[in-house]
Design a protein around this nucleic acid. Sequence first.
RNA 1: GGGCGCGUAACUCAACGGCUAGAGUGCAACCCUUACAAGGUUGAAGUUGCUGGUUCGAAUCCAGUCGUGCCCACCA
Length: 1080
Amino acid sequence: MPTELPKSYDPAFIEAEADRVWMEERLFHADPATAGEPYSIVIPPPNVTGALHLGHAINTTLQDILVRVHRMRRFNTLWIPGIDHAGIATQAVVEKQLKEKENKTRHDVGREGLVERIWAWKQQYGDRIVAQLKRLGCSCDWDRTRFTLDDMCARAVRETFFKLFKDGLIYRGKRLVNWDTFLQTSISDDEIYHETVKTSLWHIRYPIEDKLTTENTENTENTEKSTEKKEKKSASEEGRASDSSSVSSVGSVVNSASRPTHMVVATTRPETMLGDTAVAVHSEDPRWNWAIGKFVRLPLTDRLIPIIADDILVDPKFGTGVVKVTPAHDPNDYAVWQRHKGQPDEIDLINILLPDGRLVEDARWKAYAGMKRDAARLKVVEDLKAAGLLEKEEPYETQVGHSDRSKTPIEPYLSDQWFVKMAPLAEPALEVVREGIIKFYPSRFANTFLDWLGEKRDWPISRQLWWGHRIPVWTNRVGYEAGYKATYGSKPDGLAVVEHRSLLTVAEAAGRIAISRTELQEFICVRDESDSEITEYLLNWGYEQDPDVLDTWFSSALWPHSTLGWPDKTPDLEKWYPTSVLVTSRDIITLWVARMVMTGMYNMGKREGEAPAERVLSEGDAARREPRTPKPPHPHPLPGGEGIRGRSRAEASRLGIPFMDVHIHATILDGKGERMSKTKGNGVDPVDVISTHGADALRFTLTQMATETQDAKMRVQLVCPHCGHQFDNPEGKAPTVACPACKKIITRPMSNATGTPDAPLARATSDRFDVGKHFCNKIWQVSLHFVMANLEKIAAEDVDEMKWSLADRWIVSRFNRTLEIANGALESYRFDQYAKACYDFFWGDFCDWYVEASKPALRDSRRAGQTAAVLAGVLDGALRLMHPMIPFITEVLWWQLNKVRPQRGLPGRIECPPSERLIKATWPAVGSFSEAAEFLFPKIQEIVATLRNIRNQYNVSPKQPVTVSIQAPGDASRTLGENRELIELLASCKIKDILPALPEMKNAFHTTAAGCDLYVEDLVDPEAEKKVNAKRCDDLKKQIAALRGRLSNEAYTSKAPAHLVQQTKDQLTDAEAEAAKLGC
RNA sequence: GGGCGCGUAACUCAACGGCUAGAGUGCAACCCUUACAAGGUUGAAGUUGCUGGUUCGAAUCCAGUCGUGCCCACCA
């Protein structure tokens, strides 16, 4: 470090210095062998797709605060950083780039080629993210940086998949995916945008037939199995239908003569009727419930499909009350199919589309086979018209989902996917949150978790992508024989097949593979990626690895234990799992938090014997259980050495839960109240803010904004790269704008914009961060140029509290009070309160009052020594207190303080054990208070404020001292007398007398403060006096009236707490006394 | 449609059911006072969205209502 620190606050210098030392001395590095209770956090891994924005900045700042506090509290603290590979988003970005730069598709470069390119891209952008985190001051253990697609995570993924597969929790099933018929791939929900499309709503007649005709025409159905089912079904439905008509309410029985002969359904996609397998009505709709169990003849196909009841799908008040059901091509209808599956009224599922959007070749709709969707739609409508089955066609506007990538309409498309069964995994996860073993802060977010997980919807985990963890399942898609023949040139004989089977059995028993079979296929999950013996063998037998990859959340779900080395029993895992807290934003409670709890418990839970993952809470648990909604604690100290929480770590460890607390923090919004995101282009790069305000200012401001309920809105401004002018970011999405000051063109910092020589890239920032910058400046100035400058001049002497002034005792007590508030705030994740406590203390108490009070004392050789000691002790404590929030400035000031005054500390009040580096210093302990000083000093503040007020009212020049006499009751006059000099300095006045009784003061301005009479000489102006005092009198009168009213209310005096009643009485006495003095 | 929030000074936000509802910014006046003009002192600024209820007492709790935001499900 250079010997000379810059005179003015220079964040860039400070950040570089502190960062260099922290890195050189590896002070973020954690070692499991070190002593201390474990404290650990895993970072929510940012997506590698883009640069970080302020949302990430608040998230990581809060984590860093917790990490640094615990490091100072002597926990063995680890913060693991990392990045998420972000499946589809990343692949899409690279594919887009490929198209733009080389005009190639992914098929041109092939699977390996594409993945290689994505890795290269990842390297660049991953490094950028890490660099951003470092600039923010995140004290992550960079040696442990993980990536969700690195080898370590891959092993955990592989092992988890294998376990789930073996336990029968992974299965193959059909699912409706969002299918892009142009790119022929499924896409995620996030990549769909909805567009309003003008189309028609077609009303189609479906003729009703009863059961008799059914059996005659059933032959048109193709599979023998379904005929069999249908007959059974029809019979049972018949029973049910008659049941319902006899049971249901008035109006359900309709005269059969009036019954219609057809049903009318409305649709915007008429071609899908070819895949209809039912029509649904509401079971209590009197218009239709008589028809449940009967059939309709599906036009154009001549198929009979059942009329079923589905009260979830059908809203009887909407439209005709009849809904066509096309399970293979509509998500709601698919849900109907699922609901009725295995029930007596089970229905079929018919796919009519090919991956390219043409209609499947099928005897049932020969006329349309091979046609494109839109052509088929036209022809279906035409044919219905011709058949007289089109009731009407009306214009209609609807929202149609489009693929963001091909801009073509999405088709819901049925395909084979892998799923994880949720029920067995979800139940234990629900339990630990219900029981408060995992706690949410704020607590209301537990509901989000519970509601979502409570649905236990199976989790589709396969994605038709190339970027991700490939599904480790090999399938004999082509049958053994063909594959075997392709490899060995002949069909396998019986012996070979038997040998093959037994080899598989042996491998399965050895835990190398797991097998599941359907009638048509065999699925083999290979446990170890490096087990090439098995995989080569399988390939030779004609097995193929599933081409899909896993949902990116599958690897994220394992993050807390995979990053610590699981499945190995590493020292890291032993030491730091479960992690202490998860800090994240509310939008991924379901996608991420819930899944981490499930997989954590599944992989890490210690099951005794055969006991299932579910557990029964013991009595001990119940005793330890705390109320679900704890009130934010008022100042109280952190519990001693047993962690920031009182819950048992051992229990959490046994259950395998990934973290004990979940803190959901506020969301950062732009000036319009919209969430910051890359695609919207309203994200602000924290590094830009660091360049304009400094990292500490950024962190302080974000901490202050981290309230419990309110999201943080901030107006975004651009900094012109030409002239430095700062102006509001104009609305709209134009990539460039003109600077209002110099009129030159600049590029807006949107997504990955880089700017051009003509239009350089602007920085985005916000004047909301001024608070932090001003605060840091204040800290710098007072610490370096006042406190330390004085400490250099004044020799250290032993602390002797007997020599302390009122102000000395007061500031030390205030420090401890602040520390107590900060501890309570941090314990309940109320970061805003922590920031406010620091700010109020440092600026409001220390700078505004104590520093001023110390000035006369520092000039007095008898008092200078003690005052210097108090200044040093308080500054020491304050730097420790604020370091987690604003680490750079406090660290650099700390070094200087060490030089200037290496030994400091106020025994029993503020202990200051020395430390070379602040990051390694201890967190202060709450020392004892001075109640008397905290009572008396504010009286002086009040008198000073009143005198200042009078000066301003009278427009007295600051250079012109006024003469003041104070009449104060006995004790008070002694205290005031001791602080005469202080009052004189702060109020710029000259005090003549401070006495219990003053002679009559005729030529003086009279007012009151803190129960004393103040007389300001030479300011005699009855009008002005009246004006100044009139307002005070008004207030007093109102107050007296209110207090009297309260006391005369018997309900109040009898029901309100005694201390409040007493307080009211005291206030009344004081107010009346003051009113009397002022002659109100 | 379901769920969760929010509505307090011109702006951004605080405020365990209990002192005259606070702070920062902005605004006004005065001050380059020997740490700091990125500063200091003082001041103005509020029917706590609206209506009703519970209570000795409501910004706070309850009901309704209007406005607004987010998440989820989305209409044949």
